[in-house]
Amino acid sequence: MKKLKIYVDELFKDIPESDQKIAIKEEVLENLEEKVLDLIEQGKEEEDAINKAIVEFGDIEDLKNEFGVKKPVNKNMTKINLAYSIWGSLLIISLFIFINFYYSPSVIWFVYPTFVVLWWPLTMYFKWQRSK
C-alpha cells in the first residue's frame, strides 16, 4: 500500500499546495486503496492489484485543468494600449502644432503629420474593440 501513497504523491507534485489538494489527494488515495482491496478479494496478488489500479487511473491532466494549474490568462492590455496611444499621439500632435505656429504661422501644415499620427490610436481602438 505504500506504493500507492508514493504514486499519489508523485501524481500531485505539480499542483500547488492547497486545502483542496490535500482533500482530493486523500480522496484519491482512499478510493485507490479500496479498489486494490477489492481486486485482492477477486483473487489478485497485492502487487498485481496495485499495478492494475495505477494503470487504470488514467491521465492526471484532466484533473489539473480543474485546479488552478491552467496557464494564467493573459491580462487584457488593449485598454491600456489604447490610453497610451491617445496620450502619446496627443503629445506628438501638440508638438507639431507648437512648431507650426511658432516657426511658420503663415502655412498650416500640422494637419498632415496629425493625420499620420492618428492611425496609431485608431489601430489601438480597433484592437480594443476586437478584444471585447
Binding site: I24, E27, V28, N31, L32, E56, F57, G58, D59, I60, E61, D62, L63, N65, E66, F67
Partner: peptide, 17 residues
C-alpha cells in the same frame, strides 16, 4: 465503458464548483 479515475475526480471537481 470504464471511466478513468483521473477523469472521475475532474468531473467531481467541476460539478462541485
Amino acid at each position: 465503458f470504464q471511466i478513468k479515475e483521473a477523469t472521475l475526480y475532474a468531473v467531481f471537481q467541476r460539478l462541485e464548483k
